[in-house]
Design a protein around this nucleic acid. Sequence first.
DNA 1: CCAAGGATAATCT
DNA 2: GATTATCCTTGGT
Length: 283
Amino acid sequence: MAAHSRPVSAVVAVLSLFRKVRHKRQRLSVAEKSRSPHDEARTPPCEGPCSRLPITPSPQRSIYFLSPQDHPVRLGPEFFDQPAVALARALLGQVLVRRLADCTELRGRIVETEAYLGPEDEAAHSRGGRQTARNRGMFMKPGTLYVYIIYGMYFCMNVSSQGDGACVLLRALEPLEGLESMRQFRSSLGKGAAGRALKDRQLCSGPSKLCQALAIDKSFDQQDLATDGALWLERGTPEAAVVAAARVGIGRAGQWVHKPLRFYVRGSPFVSVVDRTAEQTQA
DNA sequence: CCAAGGATAATCT
DNA sequence: GATTATCCTTGGT
């Protein structure tokens, strides 16, 4: 245990490691600040007039969480406890709500999803039963979020479903409320500031676009969509006109590439990719 | 069409 | 530990 007896080279190595780690930390914190100014908003204190916590549906039916039809507004744990395909379909029409640190609420109606079935699904991160620190959320209880970074700069948001390693990717929203905040998040986080204002349909029409628009980042990974204070789901209008199409962006996944595991609201201008062929075969 | 971005996981020594 | 190929995307030609 005599530290002073270690070879000098080992001490030097340790010191240089510390230096590297510190540099990396600094780079990360700078990147986070420039990229996502509302990071700390994930678990907002929200004291004052806007504090309506807890948001979880309470047994004694608070008026805040009941729709005019006397249904709880917030979707609870039981909603997420269904197989991936069923959940992917059921999510269409539901409303995703994001509350920022300043208690601003952003709302978007889900219009496009993709189901990832688990170990047998060659396009899923859980293919072959792979379970890592990154995709742990896929294996956690239904309703758990799996948020990951893609292409080094974007986030994708998944909701765990029933079934080991199965989940649903949220691909597009119809913006309902807080459009100006969404526009800001989308343009300030984008590249050059030279761009003009984004059209409404450009705000959330893609898995990473919706994450940008709602300021959803890695801090939401493994959080519970049924109980989280900054992100939740509200019951919307059920959607009947649903198109089933092949999933997007999955390269070599064999036969899984063609399976109709993407679902979207027919005719919605807020969908990221429309599949005319699929629409024709599904009159 | 293509390049940007960096974390991640597989594949090595 | 180090190296490399990949990636559930997007925005701009």
